[in-house]
């Protein structure tokens, strides 16, 4: 790499800190001096910005992650100062610094609000996509990659590592080595959907009754040990995972089911005023955060009145006073 390229990276680094007027002018002089400087600087800055993708690819807030990091760094600093007392300064600062990388991401808690979707890179290079109103607690150890699905739904693209199983735990357990699958907690169990590879699922109550699911399969795994029915429906699996693109795709779902789905994502709840409408079946694709669009589509499709208030959308009555 040429001297110009090296200068360009130095400027990118320098302009990232506190920039004095003097530095700024020096940069301008350098930058204007040669078109090659401009090209090299664009290239270096683009690479610098590109690296931002390592950060949480999220729609949500990073405040939580930041607070957790601060907490860990505080602990790291304490351990560093303790080691300073015990051993040589150089050795101590080195060990301490190594510890940062380790402590940082092994344990991680991610919670999403209603309507929020976050994709989180995990330390082992797996990705967890956490759906609306959900929470996962991640704990990475050398023996096991453990994710507690505290509530809601998440989809995992698991990095291959046969030595260290990746286990998702709710009331049930789902185990994988390198694959992609989702788990959604429900009353009395959880839905497991597999998009890639193979997973094993079982209930904590009966570890012997394990079911194996491969790509395109789905199953409801109950907490109470019962026979688990595994079905192969790849299109259905993809459809039910359309939340990853922030979409709700309906394929002959009933109005009741569709409304329940929208209500997961929005504080503005949809209410069906006329129970007779609930069984009507619908087909279509919508954004998770546009219940209004959905309601208007229903209005046209079923030829029923729809009314709106600030916090509700009511299907089946023209008067908003329900």
């Amino acid at each position: 790499m040429s001297r110009i390229d090296e200068e360009a990276t130095q400027w990118v680094a320098r302009l990232n800190g506190e920039v004095s007027e003097e530095t700024r002018q020096a940069f301008e002089v350098w930058h204007e001096a040669d078109p090659r400087h401009q090209g090299a600087f664009l290239r270096a800055e683009a690479a610098w910005v590109m690296l931002d993708r390592a950060e949480v690819m999220a729609h949500g807030d990073t405040l939580l992650a930041r607070r957790a990091l601060e907490e860990k760094l505080k602990r790291h600093r304490n351990s560093v100062s303790r080691r300073y007392v015990m051993g040589g300064a150089v050795a101590a600062s080195l060990t301490g610094a190594v510890a940062v990388g380790y402590v940082l991401a092994n344990r991680l808690s991610v919670a999403t609000g209603v309507g929020e979707l976050r994709s989180i890179p995990l330390k082992d290079r797996s990705i967890a996509s956490v759906n609306t109103d959900s929470q996962i607690d991640v704990d990475m150890t050398p023996q096991i990659r453990h994710v507690a699905l505290v509530k809601g739904e998440a989809w995992f693209e698991v990095a291959k590592n046969p030595e260290v199983p990746f286990v998702v735990a709710g009331d049930i357990r789902v185990r994988a080595v390198g694959t992609a699958f989702s788990v959604r907690r429900r009353e009395g169990g959880a839905d497991v959907l597999v998009t890639e590879g193979t997973v094993e699922a079982w209930t904590v109550n009966d570890k012997n009754k394990r079911v194996t699911l491969t790509a395109g399969h789905e199953a409801f795994v109950p907490v109470k040990a019962e026979v688990v029915e595994v079905t192969y429906r790849p299109e259905e699996v993809e459809r039910r995972l359309s939340w990853r693109e922030r979409e709700i795709v309906l394929n002959s779902e009933t109005l009741t089911e569709a409304v329940a789905e929208f209500n997961r994502y929005n504080s503005r709840q949809i209410v069906i005023a006329d129970p007779a409408l609930g069984a009507q079946k619908l087909v279509g694709g919508f954004h998770v955060d546009q219940p209004e669009t959905f309601a208007r589509a229903v209005q046209t499709a079923l030829n029923v009145p729809v009314s709106e208030t600030d916090d509700r959308i009511i299907i089946g009555t023209a008067s908003a006073s329900l």
Binding site: M1, D5, E6, T9, Q10, V12, A13, R14, N16, G17, E18, R43, A44, A47, W48, L51, L73, H76, R77, V80, S93, G96, A97, V100
Partner: peptide, 22 residues
């Protein structure tokens, strides 16, 4: 966080970016 000077962070940033580009 790393208990090093900003100057060193800057130097490491330039060095790392250079390596990555290479």
């Amino acid at each position: 966080a790393l208990r090093i000077s900003e100057n060193i962070v800057e130097k490491e940033t330039a060095r790392g970016l250079n390596l990555i580009l290479r």
